[in-house]
Design a protein around this nucleic acid. Structure first.
Lengths: 211, 211
DNA sequence: TTAAAATATTAACGGTGTTAATTATATTTG
DNA sequence: CAAATATAATTAACACCGTTAATATTTTAA
């Protein structure tokens, strides 16, 4: 009995080990360059064994995807203690930018790669708390801003979507190299991420006038 | 002599035919699903022959990438006749959204996929007019808005970057499925692209107050 | 101890981008 | 015109990829 449970645990450990190795390889080499075969080799397992633990590569990606959302969610969570809605909104933007820059591969997986709809569709029990939380927190913050007199006459959903789109747009353009590209031609490009922060601060200045 | 030139032209035609087939396959099945082999099969050519005309798959992608920018650039070009800077800015945003929705694969190639830096780096003669033009037009429009009294005290580069980031963020989130995903949970999702246009109109309302 | 279930492996399918070596086809030169 | 050369296209091959089916091994239950 005791031994049985111990083995069960070791079996579950394999599942986690696969994910861990997948994550490391992925964070080191990117998602495209991380193959089932390489994961298996690293863990000294046959490639096909992976399929006993994960349906396919997409499921591994999706599991990591969820992990990323949990990570970002935690960073958002601590901001709930910021009383002022507007201050919180600013902080959320900066946290988001920071997260994207410092976890480029996670960000890629979470927001840039196409959603693996197969798994998203399997949200029977409304699984997917992590992602929802992040946007929910943003929405609530926008509502708090409205209570503080901001965004009068504007729909809160649209405002939240605007904020998200703007920071995501900045991150996405930066991470995919488009910013360095166009920017280097027209804008004199400052320190890597300062460009993003500076742009966001301009946005904040605009929001600030929306009182 | 005459025949020689004719043959040269036929050779050049192969080059164009490859690109045409690549584009069709790509627009039909997406970039990932479009392989050198499939292109070659469609054109009744050996796969390796492709490599006599294009260095690798990336070069084909880059050529199409440029074509997409030319397409978008043309749509921007006609807007130069809109006198009011602010009206032009609004129009540019809508054109951009429209372009992304109606040419999803081109948009993917142009703005979502990673830049093929190998080719970008080869812009010795500052090749890359197409892309530069688009951002240049935006920047000029922002400057015109400033002349009309908008965006006082804000850096024009940052404002332009903000506008671009916002519309790109909307398109990117939409095309990659993230919007349907989160939106369907929090926002009651309207007609596909109306969600984007509605969000953009909210942004415009915000900009409008920036006078 | 033996039957059944869980775990892991090998072999294989059909695909990918790309390179090297080889053949066929034009073009130029002797 | 014929031979030599350059160009164009091909076949064969390499080293990968995700994934499935059939098989072997190990662990659990009766």
């Amino acid at each position: 009995m005791g031994r049985k449970e111990k083995d069960k645990k070791q079996i579950e450990d394999v599942r986690l080990r696969i994910l861990e190795v997948a994550k490391n390889l992925f964070l080191k080499n990117g998602f495209e360059a991380t193959s089932i075969r390489k994961i298996a080799a690293e863990i000294q397992l046959s490639p096909t064994t992976i399929y006993l633990y994960y349906k396919d590569k997409g499921e591994i990606a999706y599991t990591l995807h969820k992990e990323g959302f949990k990570l970002l969610g935690e960073q958002f969570f601590v901001l709930q203690h910021v009383e002022s809605g507007f201050e919180r909104l600013k902080a959320m933007g900066k946290v988001y930018l920071n997260f994207a820059i410092q976890n480029t591969d996670f960000y890629q997986l979470m927001f840039i790669m196409k959603e693996p709809i197969d798994f998203i569709a399997d949200k029977d029990s409304c699984q997917w708390e992590e992602g929802e939380f992040a946007f929910g927190a943003l929405l609530q913050t926008v509502l708090d801003c409205k209570a503080e007199g901001y965004f009068k006459g504007l729909n809160e959903n649209n405002v939240a979507l605007n904020v998200w789109s703007l920071v995501h747009g900045l991150c996405s353009l930066k991470l995919q190299g488009h910013l360095d590209h166009v920017a280097s031609a027209h804008l004199h490009v400052p320190e890597d991420r300062d460009l993003l922060e500076e742009a966001f601060e301009t946005f904040v200045m605009m929001l600030d006038k929306m009182k």
